[in-house]
Design a protein around this nucleic acid. Structure first.
Lengths: 150, 150
DNA sequence: CCAACTGTATATGTTATATATACACACCAG
DNA sequence: CTGGTGTGTATATATAACATATACAGTTGG
């Protein structure tokens, strides 16, 4: 008997037009799924071929993404067996997201300062955009109450 | 008589190791200098060859950067004459910085949310990092009181 | 053992970046 | 007006990251 195997469609959408490399989009998607607990430790990720087929990318691109996730300790690979979420994958994924978020904020503050905003103005600007983004995100999840296919 | 010509050394440091393409680093540097008013409208930017020599990059890389800045309406080029800061270069530069900052914040908030933070926690996290960054930036400018060469 | 899955490795094409070199335009000294 | 020296401009070339196809190697279960 083996671990349950995750479905892949939740990772998308992956697109060459989207910002960032294809493999990076896959990495980001899995960090989200693992970080939010939808892929628990021990769960097997989709195989290279399956995910490649579903996302319309090559096997090597999937491999590249999995390599990156393994380098960060979020998943591990076993030849002939498959690829699995690490026991502490969720924590590591969340830590990576937090670190990334912090770096982005620091950049944003620097940009705001260089845009001519005073420290107080910069703080207000960041606060306003943050609140806006949070309320928009909430709005996107609320209307999902209509009946959908099982 | 011609417009004064700006010096280049303030743009750096430019490095292949730094994040982003070389030409992009140059773009960012000029947006900062123009946005903060140190390069006013009408001022001539350094020539391709001079800047290339000072930054240890090729002429084409400088050209690439200037093309990008012209596309955003921050500077304009005149063959045989030189490259100049646009009349509204400062405003456009600041607007670009603000837009960039806003995009970064939205990304950061999304990452923070996917890291498992609640909206309230995300807001607190953003606020804390913002304050930290601002105080660090202030600390870097204060100690510049020692005597320096004229 | 063999078939059918897994992940792995090598060679190749495409694109973005960075470069060197040669060219065209504008000003100014003579 | 003519040439020199400074501008920006254009073409062809090297390098690195990204993405791909194809062939290889390990694991499992009939």
């Amino acid at each position: 008997m083996s671990e349950p195997r995750a479905i892949a469609v939740q990772i998308g959408p992956i697109s060459p037009a989207a910002p960032g490399a294809l493999y990076q989009q896959i990495v980001t998607g899995f960090k989200r799924e693992i970080g939010e607990g939808r892929l628990a430790g021990g769960i097997a990720l989709p195989s290279f071929r399956l995910l490649a087929e579903q996302l319309l990318v090559s096997i090597i691109t999937v491999r590249r993404a999995y390599e990156e996730l393994e380098r960060e300790g979020i998943i591990y690979r076993r030849q002939g067996l498959g690829t699995f979420v690490a026991a502490d994958g969720r924590e590591r994924s969340r830590a990576a997201k937090r670190g990334h978020a912090e770096a982005l904020i620091r950049l944003a503050v620097q940009e705001a300062t260089e845009a001519g905003l005073s420290p107080a103005q910069a703080k207000a600007f960041v606060s306003r955009v943050t609140t806006e983004t949070l309320s928009e995100a909430k709005a996107c999840k609320a209307p999902t109450l209509s009946k959908s296919a099982a």
